[in-house]
Design a protein around this nucleic acid. Structure first.
Length: 650
RNA sequence: GUGCCUGUAGCUCAGCUGGAUAGAGCGUUGGACUCCGGAUCCAAAGGUCGGAGGUUCGAAUCCUCUCAGGCACGCCA
């Protein structure tokens, strides 16, 4: 069953309104169909009697009682229940609703609303290995992309590469000044290059803090990189490209991919900023400060605080981060009047990943950018800057695009004191006082993404070997990888985005309870039933269909307890599309995660109570199979949206 | 100082645009079918929803105040 619950509810609402209208002053928006706390009280609750009580000067319960008979005979409604202080609950006609939803199986209530959506996520500085904070960003961004695509939206995923930023400069400084290495040395450097740079970057940060005189050399490196002068330029390019490949490999382990990599170096070469600067000046979005602290700078007034201004161009003529970001945001909407060139960077599963270039190349790249809506997945600490960027659009009179610029903000991942010990980090006394510690690339403090994935895989492998020692090696490893991915992706999605995750190894490495592997295990058991169905009865999943001709679905004489359990399970499964829409609307992907978990909990309970293959009554057996098939399809879809792959066995 | 976020069971967190008896996982205690996989299921114990006012038929949810914690506010990115 696709979930036509949305259409069903809308139709139901309209029918209810039609019946009530002659007798009560109700509008469509007064009619919300909420779930009841207990199926015994009916399936869907109406609360309008409470709203009308004052207007009609009547008790809500009396209104509900008066209204109840009016709803008799609505298609799909089997009866009404007046409950509590004035709830009017609808009891649905289970067979009819089941038949209808199954009849429409495969159809969807979802429809695209945007011309094109650009999602920017991951955006890791290409100077060190990815860590758990980056994983949260990428998991959120990728899941959002999957949800929007499922809804039918055209989605383009961009991963911005800041390949000329200070962080890359620091690592180039380290290679040149601290290690005296040439480009050829780097090319021969074996092993995990991103890990090597992780340590080097921390060393450079410490060195620069202790050697202020080294700043001059650092500035020189920055300038030479900007002007394309070797060896600095070549080194920066080598470092950033090799590390981007490492990041892509890390994300590929999680099934996360991208469409295009816009690079800051290209933005500089193609003078995106110059064009944005012209626009900002033309439309008087910024002005040259004549006095005060910002004298000589081009600044923008802040909307919420007239007194304050944000520097966009420094007094030395260089542009700030926010300025560059405004140019990039304009480009995403196709408003800049300039464009990148592209060349293929890699091919993964037949999907080409493009990278921006300053010079025309072979072509063949799709038309990137030109979005009607943009999501920037960036942690909450950048909320202020994101606001300034949007304000920049508004100042340019791009009101519509400003309104369609969404900052998908989320809290950071921090480290628990316990995890600090495990990392062997020597915390200062001040740091020990804190309940958590921020991940810090400068200090070299953090849990590397690949290390975490390695540990998850090792643990999963150990579990598999314990349970099923005879499996072929390749099979075991593939399964361990799926489990590791499932565990990590669910972990990153289960928390609300405003919730600070204080990372703890024990929690992250758990495979029991509310975890990815629990969901995968549920799916695997379901698959097991259908595998055995084939073996024992010769029936494939495609053979599990509702009886033809709208015949009665629910076997006569089905025990009330089982009828209620089946109904509850089906109704839950059918709400997938609603949950996806709700997740997108609230930018709260934990809704989707919790939904999948709830569905699994209900399914596991059902699984325990009602045998399927062992059931002797053929009618009952096929009814249960139909229930399980329905749930299985929805569950697989939900897992897919979270990037979680259920293994064949586990 | 200003702005944003958070405070719910021993711990980690849910709680949809205010709706009925505040839920889950972990942990603790006690259980489970010669069963379709025990990475599962069932049960018990565990809560002044930080505090005080207010709005409402109804508040964990909205408003005000207050306490506690976090983050942001740069001619860094």
């Amino acid at each position: 069953m696709g979930s036509q619950m949305i259409t069903f509810k809308d139709r139901l609402k309209a029918a209810v309104l039609e019946r009530l209208k002659p007798a009560f002053p109700v509008a469509l928006e007064d009619l919300d169909l909420a779930p009841t706390p207990d199926p015994k009280m009916g399936d869907l609750a109406l609360t309008f009697p409470f709203q009308l009580a004052k207007k009609l000067k009547k008790a809500p319960r009396a209104i509900a009682q008066e209204a109840a008979p009016l709803l008799a005979g609505i298609p799909g409604v089997a009866g009404t229940v007046v409950a509590g202080a004035g709830f009017l609950n609808l009891r649905l006609d289970r067979s009819a609703v089941l038949a209808e939803t199954l009849r429409l199986a495969g159809r969807t209530d979802l429809a695209a609303e945007e011309g094109k959506i650009v999602i920017e996520h991951t955006n890791i500085n290409p100077n060190k290995a990815a860590h758990i904070g980056h994983l949260r960003n990428a998991c959120l961004g990728d899941t959002l992309a999957r949800c929007l695509r499922y809804k039918g939206e055209p989605v383009e995923v961009q991963n911005y590469i800041d390949d000329t930023g200070v962080q890359v400069v620091d690592v180039v400084f380290g290679f040149m000044e601290l290690e005296k290495r040439s480009l050829e040395d780097l090319e021969r450097l074996p092993g995990r290059f991103d890990y090597y740079c992780w340590d080097l970057y921390a060393r450079v940060s410490a060195y620069l803090a202790g050697h202020p005189e080294a700043q001059a050399r650092k500035s020189e490196i920055t300038k030479r990189i900007e002007h394309g002068q070797d060896p600095e330029y070549g080194l920066s390019r080598y470092v950033s490209r090799r590390i981007v490949r490492a990041h892509l490999a890390t994300m590929a382990r999680l099934g996360i991919g991208y469409d295009v990599l816009p690079c800051e170096s290209t933005i500089l070469h193609l003078k995106f900023w110059d064009r944005a600067f012209e626009l900002l000046k033309e439309r008087r979005a910024i002005y040259l400060a004549a006095e005060g602290d910002n004298k000589g700078c081009w600044v923008m007034r802040l909307e919420e605080d007239e007194e304050r201004e944000k520097v966009i161009v420094r007094s030395d003529g260089t542009v700030t981060y926010v300025g560059k970001d405004i140019a990039y945001q304009l480009w995403k909407f196709g408003l800049l009047g300039r464009d990148f060139f592209y060349e293929p960077f890699s091919v993964e599963n037949g999907r080409t990943l493009w990278i921006s270039t300053a010079a025309p190349s072979n072509g063949g790249a799709p038309a990137f950018g030109r979005a009607t809506k943009v999501y920037n997945v960036i942690d909450t600490r950048q909320a202020y800057l994101q606001k300034v960027v949007v304000q920049g659009l508004r100042a340019l009179k791009y009101e519509a695009q400003a309104a369609q610029s969404v900052h998908f903000s989320y809290e950071m991942v921090a480290l628990s004191p316990k995890s600090l010990d495990e990392l062997g980090y020597a915390a200062t006394d001040e740091e020990k006082e804190r309940s958590f510690l921020e991940v810090s690339g400068r200090k070299g403090l953090g849990v590397k993404a690949d290390d975490l994935l390695d540990r998850l895989e090792a643990k999963a492998l150990a579990e598999i070997e314990k349970r099923d020692p005879d499996r072929p090696d390749a099979d075991r490893r593939r399964t361990a990888r799926d489990i590791a991915t499932g565990a990590l992706r669910y972990f990153m999605l289960k928390y609300a985005r405003n919730s600070l995750i204080v990372f703890d190894f024990e929690e992250a490495l758990s495979f029991e309870g509310e975890t990815g592997p629990y969901l995968q295990y549920t799916a695997v058991r379901l698959a097991g039933i259908f595998r055995k169905l084939k073996e024992r009865f010769g029936l494939g999943e495609a053979d599990i269909r509702p009886p033809a001709g709208g015949a009665l679905l629910i076997p006569p004489g089905l025990a009330e307890a089982e009828a209620a359990d089946s109904w509850d399970l089906i109704l839950t499964a059918a709400s997938l599309e609603e949950e996806v829409l709700r997740s997108i609307a609230a930018l709260e992907l934990s809704h989707l995660a919790k939904f999948a978990f709830l569905l699994c909990q209900k399914l596991n309970g059902y699984y325990h109570k009602y045998p399927v293959l062992a059931e002797q009554d053929a009618g009952l057996r096929s009814f249960r199979l139909l229930v399980l098939k329905t749930v299985k399809d929805q569950l697989i879809t939900a897992l897919g949206l979270m990037g979680i792959q259920p293994p064949e066995r586990m």
